[in-house]
Structures are given as structure tokens and as C-alpha cells.
């Protein structure tokens, strides 16, 4: 059967993929998220190896036991490693180039990824000491968006030996 002359044949099909889901932060991440709303970093400690994890996932990946407590950490730390983002991509909200760094908070035994600002991209380095810049208290909520970014805090660079175990 021939198509109708001049009719434009259907060539594509829009099939949006959508998942509605109910997210429970769980017992470990809930105090962490509430801490962010109050301008604090709250982790948990492994009762066996004594390491402090942030964000806490509820268990120690080394010892396989539940982590405990609510360890309030400093809101400053050390850049252990970083990358300079020069590539634009869809949905990008930060002006390039910018720095995506692993920040090891003082007192923590694991680093997490963070944005570094208020320093030229070519001056960021391993060992750079940084502090959190929080959004104004009235804008904070139980989300990492309560931290605007990290910036240099003026302290001398950390010794490599102090963070080499966390690379």
C-alpha cells in the first residue's frame, strides 16, 4: 500500500521516560541533612576503625558495621585533588572555567566533591586550605545547596603527608 502522496511520514516518536519516586534519606543521612539546614557538617563514626564519614551512608565500607553518632565537623578543610572544568555542557549553571575539587573536611576521613570559588582556576592546588561559604540562614535547608561553595581561607597549604592517605 502506497503512502498518501505528499503526506509526511511519521519518523520519530516522543517517549518521555519518567520515574516518580519517594526518597527516604534514612537514619544516617537525615542528621547530616538537618545539619546542613543549620550550617553544620554532621558525619558519623565507625565504632571499629574510628573513621568519620561524611556524608554518612550508615555503614562503614571497611568494617561492614553501622556507623554511629553525630560528629560535627569543622566547615573548613583541604583540597586533596581537583579538576578545572573548561567544557560547557547542557544545564551548566556555573561560569567556566571553574574548579571541582575533593575537599577533606578537618576531622573527616573521606573527601567529598565541592565547588571552589574566589580563586583563579590556575592557582588552585593540592593542599589548598578552604572554608565553606554558606547561603544566608533563611535560605538554608536540608540540602547540600545550603553550601554555596568553598573558598580559600588564607591558612598555609596543608602538608602532603597530612592528606596523602585520602587521595
Amino acid at each position: 500500500m502506497a503512502d498518501r502522496p505528499g503526506s509526511d511520514q511519521v519518523t520519530t516518536l516522543d517517549t518521555p521516560i519518567r520515574l516518580d519516586y519517594h526518597f527516604s534519606a534514612g537514619a544516617a543521612a537525615t542528621p547530616y541533612l538537618r545539619g546542613l539546614a543549620e550550617g553544620k557538617f554532621v558525619g558519623q563514626r565507625c565504632p571499629v576503625c574510628r573513621k568519620v564519614y561524611i556524608p554518612p551512608r550508615g555503614s562503614c565500607p571497611t568494617d561492614g558495621v553501622a556507623t554511629e553518632g553525630a560528629e560535627v565537623l569543622a566547615d573548613k578543610g583541604t583540597v586533596t585533588t581537583y579538576c578545572v572544568v573548561n567544557v560547557p555542557f547542557a544545564g551548566q549553571s556555573i561560569e567556566i572555567p571553574y574548579i571541582c575539587a575533593q575537599v577533606l573536611l578537618d576531622g573527616a576521613d573521606i573527601s567529598f566533591m565541592s565547588l571552589i570559588q574566589e580563586i583563579p582556576a590556575d592557582q588552585v592546588r593540592m593542599g589548598l586550605r578552604v572554608e565553606a561559604v554558606w547561603v544566608p540562614p533563611e535560605e538554608r535547608g536540608p540540602t547540600l545547596a545550603s553550601v554555596e561553595y568553598f573558598r580559600p581561607n588564607g591558612e598555609p597549604d596543608a602538608d602532603y603527608d597530612s592528606y596523602k592517605a585520602y587521595l
Binding site: Q9, V10, P16, L19, Y21, H22, F23, S24, A29, L33
Partner: peptide, 21 residues
Amino acid sequence: VLTAEHVLEYPYSRSVGPVIG
């Protein structure tokens, strides 16, 4: 415990080929 409703959605357009088309 904190909970939230999340939506994960991708706009997706596939080519259908000559027969399904």
C-alpha cells in the same frame, strides 16, 4: 527521617524506522 518526592524524567525522542513509521 527526612523523605522527599522526586521526579526523574528524560525527554526522549526515538526514530521509528520506515515500517513502524
